[in-house]
């Protein structure tokens, strides 16, 4: 349950930037989260709701999350394919088991809205 820490880090970063810009109220925070990071959106939302109650800058703010599925690229034929689970991962075209992950490892703050 490290979602609380993640939300806190995100809010600290947004607050720092918002303060520097003279923004007094944040309406929304936009995060991008890859599915292999093991951060549960429900827990992120819950954490955000709880923490925003004690931080006036975030009163009533909404957390938006864009989830990115896991995608691999075959090291042998270059085909990009989705990975649902990490057991027996193989390229659907050539069967190679060597791959690099090209999506699904994201964990960043895209933007925020405020005034």
């Amino acid at each position: 349950m490290h979602e609380m820490s993640l939300v806190q880090y995100a809010m600290d970063a947004v607050e720092q930037r918002a303060m520097g810009m003279g923004i007094r109220h944040v309406r929304g925070v936009y995060l991008v989260i890859g599915e292999m990071r093991g951060a549960l959106p429900e827990l992120m939302e819950y954490g955000f709701r709880v923490l925003s109650r004690s931080r006036p800058l975030f009163f009533g703010a909404v957390l938006h999350m864009e989830l990115r599925s896991v995608e691999a690229q075959c090291a042998d034929c270059g085909r990009r394919y989705g990975v649902r689970e990490f057991h027996g991962v193989a390229c659907p075209d050539c069967g190679s088991r060597v791959y690099t992950l090209v999506q699904g490892n994201e964990l960043y703050i895209e933007s925020f809205e405020g005034e």
Partner: peptide, 14 residues
């Protein structure tokens, strides 16, 4: 106003 950060959530930890 929309402010783009494009910043890792764990940047402070890093």
């Amino acid at each position: 106003m929309k402010v783009y950060l494009e910043q890792e959530i764990l940047q402070e930890n890093e």
